[in-house]
Design a protein around this nucleic acid. Structure first.
Lengths: 352, 352
DNA sequence: CTGTTAGCGCTTTCAT
DNA sequence: ATGAAAGCGCTAACAG
């Protein structure tokens, strides 16, 4: 069934049918209803491929996840990360998809983890298949940025650093810095002075921001940075355990009394490690995480943490992009930050 | 830049350019190279929207996830499940996306969790936007099935039950029954006779199969079923804890010596519960899980379990679908099962 | 082997 | 207010 069939059935021309479908202004209510009745009766839906070719926007947004599947430094044959190992990415996919569908858009998902994928990415953003792109992953890649700029595709970056402003790119940030500052401040407020930090993957913007805030907060409070108290993790469960171990082994004789861990996932296994070493949480060591993962909350109900509302981030990103696609004017879009909040549970106590 | 431009530049007609792009047989090497050179020089890519309209297949596969976001029985305002709460679904998305992209296909992802989403699903499969569909979720919905059949869209069901054969539907199964039978058999082999089972969400096909195998295996071994030893879970972390509690409270005076838990995720929290109650695993209670989740493995390294190779399932599903799309003949596609294996780790011991 | 031509189903000027 | 006609960029049947 095509528009021509509807036209015949309704006794009008294809153009009129098109006008009804697209809600053109100067078309009398009578004609509109007549045509609409036929459309409804036959359950006609316009072919969106044809519409796109004829110049309409395609209601598809590309969600591009820049992440490594393999960490070659560790084991070239063994998958290390993947989107399903990251609750952050999994949640983002959930919520972005949902937000898009609530606006009658669909999500085309793509994971970019190799050079050949980068080339496919390039083709995709040059094509008319998608009318906008959402970029996540936190590691801004010059080559990719170049492709995005030259393709002119409307793009939103979620929690990625960019030095410069580009006409076709908008940003959505969550309060990584502010949240991490609060986290550290809460530890200090409880009386701690020997405070450690297990970082996220420092290739990622959010991890770097959280580290920066940690340092700033200590300095602002007149606490000297102790290099041995900063351990590099990578946001994964496993690295939480390893980082905790490294922290312990480096500081056996001078353990910190509190730790700010860059995400809840690492906190899960870090806490496990400390328990194995017979530390009591929070009596011996206070812990604050970041993200407020539902996963982590179920695993260890009492973790004090900082929320990062991924749902809001996703909705904001999708809505901004859709507005951008239709308005074609970046200046009309508010690029505010998504708020973080301190979630006070049971893993912070004053030091002994 | 369009094919006409390339044609002019290469001194041929548009048709010839099209033939080169589509690898037509009877076209001399010389012409081919001449045209290809121009294509490469200008980095021309054919507009896939136009190709699709002109009759080519669109290299997009729809991945449809049928799952509830909310469990109204428990709390209408509170999200209960979502794809990111299920490692199975998260992994499937990862691997399906990867497999598709390795075959130059893209994945359009959609989560169907409401009536309005069902209607959008209907539009999508009737459109030419996607040339095939993958269905996951395990709860075959009559309404959806009807839409799929009448739309004729080429579809692959992953681990879903279907009574009947349809020309446009193919199946990929993993060995739910066989794996669960093995799991139970391993417990019996170790000497257990008092064996319990925590089921998955029984609305789902895989959960029902696992339960069926559990029962069959006990009967085949002459062990009488104890109703109080079968507890209904729903595959989620939380339900693992709750089910373990229910099992304990129902059987305080006659606890089973072994439990087959329908997925590793529930096993994580079930084990936590039993430890709280001062049971030793496996001395007091042997446990076997299912799925061999990397997540669960990191959380509790020693869990004995049954593998369900989600990567293979995904690859098989994508490859079969692509073959189906191009061959247009279901009979040529092998619909074999993806093998499960017993992973012998540290949570099974003979009873005391 | 290759060019010409007719669509694919829709939107959108242009004309009335 | 509405119909006729052109065109989006490509493929494929037809002709030679």
């Amino acid at each position: 069934m095509k528009s021509e069939d509807i036209a015949k059935l309704a006794g009008v021309s294809r153009s009129t049918v098109s006008r009804v479908i697209n809600n053109y202004p100067n078309i009398p209510e009578k004609t509109k209803q007549k045509v609409q009745a036929v459309i409804d009766k036959y359950g006609y839906t316009p072919n969106s491929i044809a519409r796109t070719l004829a110049g309409k926007k395609n209601n598809i947004i590309g969600l591009f996840i820049f992440d490594k599947f393999y960490n070659k430094n560790i084991d070239p044959n063994n998958p290390m990360y993947s989107i399903h190992d990251s609750p952050y990415l999994s949640e983002l996919i959930s919520y972005v998809t949902d937000a898009a569908e609530n606006n009658d858009f669909n999500i085309l998902i793509s994971v970019i983890n190799s050079q050949s994928k980068k080339n496919k990415f390039d083709k995709l953003i040059k094509s008319d298949i998608i009318s906008g792109a959402i970029i996540v992953g936190g590691e801004t890649d010059k080559e990719i940025l170049g492709k995005i700029i030259s393709s002119k595709i409307k793009t939103v970056f979620i929690d990625e650093y960019l030095d410069g402003e580009y006409d076709n790119i908008i940003h959505i940030y969550s309060e990584n810095y502010e949240g991490a500052y609060t986290a550290t401040q809460e530890l200090i407020k409880a009386g701690h002075k020997k405070i450690a930090h297990i970082t996220g993957n420092l290739k990622k913007f959010d991890a770097r921001e959280r580290l920066r805030a940690f340092k700033d907060c200590l300095i602002d409070n007149g606490i000297k940075l102790n290099k041995n108290y900063i351990i590099e993790g990578d946001f994964s469960l496993k690295s939480g355990y390893n980082a905790a171990k490294e922290l312990y082994e480096k500081n056996k004789n001078n353990m910190p009394t509190a730790i700010f861990i860059a995400n809840d996932l690492m906190a899960v296994k870090a806490i496990e490690y400390f328990k194995e070493k017979n530390f009591n949480i929070p009596q011996d060591i206070s812990i604050i995480g970041f993200d407020n993962h539902s996963f982590a909350e179920i695993l260890l109900g009492g973790l004090s943490t900082i929320s990062r509302p991924i749902g809001e981030l996703a909705i904001k990103a999708v809505n901004s992009l859709i507005t951008f696609i239709y308005l074609d004017d970046k200046s009309k879009i508010k690029q505010e930050k998504i708020k973080s909040n301190y979630i006070n549970r049971k893993t912070i106590k004053p030091p002994k």
